[in-house]
Amino acid sequence: MEGAAAKTPVIEVEALEKRYGAVHAVRGVSFAILPGTCVGLLGPNGAGKTTTMRMIMGLTHVTAGRLRLFGEAPRDLGRGLRERVGLVPQEDNLDPDLSVRQNLEVYGRYFGIEAGQVALRVPKLLDFMQLAERGAAKVMQLSGGMKRRLIIARALISNPELVILDEPTTGLDPQARVMIWRRLLDLKRDGKTLLLTTHYMEEAQRLCDRIIIIDGGKVLDEGTPQQLIDRHVRGHVLEVAKPLPDGFVEDGLERNDIGDAVLYYASDPAEVTRRLPRDATYLHRAANLEDVFLRLTGHSLRQGG
């Protein structure tokens, strides 16, 4: 029993589609997320990440396809399911009329959590997100990083099993980002399931067990970061500036023309370097998810679709 229950995916979507009138935002997305894992949904702006998350949260209707949460099909009144999920939305929707502490207390009431429980959880959450001294502050007085942390604390008020985070660190400075990463790793250690979107490859590589690459409303590939790198860009990237050196024979090499230079992918850098003239200059580095993305979509992750 235990084993079977543990293997039920927390989220399971099949051929999920969303149309907003004429806009086909999500065009048949399928994936499954196992309990206790952190999965990253990676894609440029407009890829359909937020829409996918909103469908999972029941914040927008599913146009077509199948969706299961904790093995159950969520209905409009799936209150039991909603209590088990926390959402960190892409845009700040903290309650500006309330203080930091009140934001958590009031949110706890929306979950039907009794006042005594909320009173116990709020200081712990403020502590956890390093907001303890800011409890009485107005939301307006918080920096962008603190607001983000408060939104994460708020998503945890019901002690959810699944936390969905839509770009939790976009626009934050590196320190603020690192702090949030630590907390997310803590949550993972606690056994929570995380689904997050990000534009930052480093974030995905640090946090995610699995990565789903999505563009134009479709899943392009998924796997562990290493699997994706091995599958699409081998281990090494050699960047050779244009014009390419005379006498350089590219035949048989995996290449990607990025305009003013060409990227070559190889499991052994010598595959490329031995073909290059002795005096040719090139850049050599380990392949990363950014390369995978570039390879799969033809554009970089940050620049948008």
Binding site: L59, Y107, Y110
Partner: peptide, 9 residues
């Protein structure tokens, strides 16, 4: 939007 992400319908 924030409220609708909770059990409140």
């Amino acid at each position: 939007d924030a409220i609708l992400a909770t059990p409140v319908t």
